[in-house]
Design a protein around this nucleic acid. Structure first.
Lengths: 151, 151
DNA sequence: GGTAATTCCTATGATATAACTAGGAAAATA
DNA sequence: TATTTTCCTAGTTATATCATAGGAATTACC
């Protein structure tokens, strides 16, 4: 029951882009990697998912990088997590498709899992990228603050 | 972000014991495994966790098996899942102990994860084993019902 | 008392997933 | 043309999941 590094790093990456894309110049992975203490190579994979899905606009070549395609309020945390984590269903049979449980009509726990899934989605969609950026700024402005790396 | 078979099978196992422990005779793993279509050997490991934690009382020897130690209303689903899944914290830094993030005072996403964790725990503690047993019975009594195996 | 049934304990293996690393092509800038 | 950067995909390593396996200990029943 863990969010993987993909989802966690994606969130940090998006926050970083949102914070540093002020003047309209794209934010490079090199800079993000440095600030977040993550490898460029791993971030490349994650950012690929985000830009393919239209969450980020990429600028190739020297001085290139990434920019948000919408204002930070336009992304819920759920959007980002569902995209990068694949699916947040706590059990496979909720995913639909091939994993759908054929006998779901009689499964004693199905309703319970369905409710858990809905509860999680409802929670993560209550927060937007802008909320996280605001939290970042609020916390950073406290005396003695250092960047957090683990979450 | 998945509940493992340990947690899911533990729930099914507990439901099975709750349903078949009517006359005070213990329910054997062999019977449970047959009804749930799971291997005795794998269930042994799961039931070991449950009985070591005092969730089940075990009776050794021939005609032995397992019994609930409290009425089904006395177990929340959260109790069972937290025990068997280890920890439902969506990120490691929420666990406390060694995984605690030393710089949590400035982590932009920590509050978000904390809230998610709390939301999940609140949900899974709203249901008891008795609720699941009731759901099982309700669904089984519908015409054309078969036992569900995947959840 | 012997035998079968059952729990208990621990080791082993197989498979999948997570978490990266690596190499190089393509594009744009200066 | 050299440098910076994104883009693409393959490979590697570590860890966790999902079991299977073997055998010892315990008890009921005949």
């Amino acid at each position: 029951m863990r969010i993987s590094t993909k989802g966690r790093y994606a969130l940090r990456l998006m926050i970083d882009v949102a914070e540093h894309d002020g003047g309209g110049t794209p934010v490079s992975l090199k800079d993000i990697a440095q600030r977040q203490d993550l490898s460029v190579k791993y971030l490349e994979q994650i950012v690929g998912i985000l830009s393919k899905a239209g969450f980020l606009h990429s600028v190739r070549g020297a001085q290139g990088g990434y920019q948000l395609t919408r204002p930070a309020e336009g992304y819920t945390v759920g959007d980002i997590l569902r995209l990068t984590e694949g699916n947040l269903a706590p059990v496979a049979c909720l995913e639909g498709g091939e994993n759908r449980c054929g006998r779901s009509g009689v499964c004693a726990t199905l309703d319970f899992w369905t409710g858990l899934y809905a509860t999680i989605n409802r929670y993560i969609d209550r927060f937007t990228l802008a909320d996280l950026v605001a939290a970042e700024k609020r916390k950073r402005n406290r005396p003695g603050a250092h960047a957090a790396r683990d979450c």
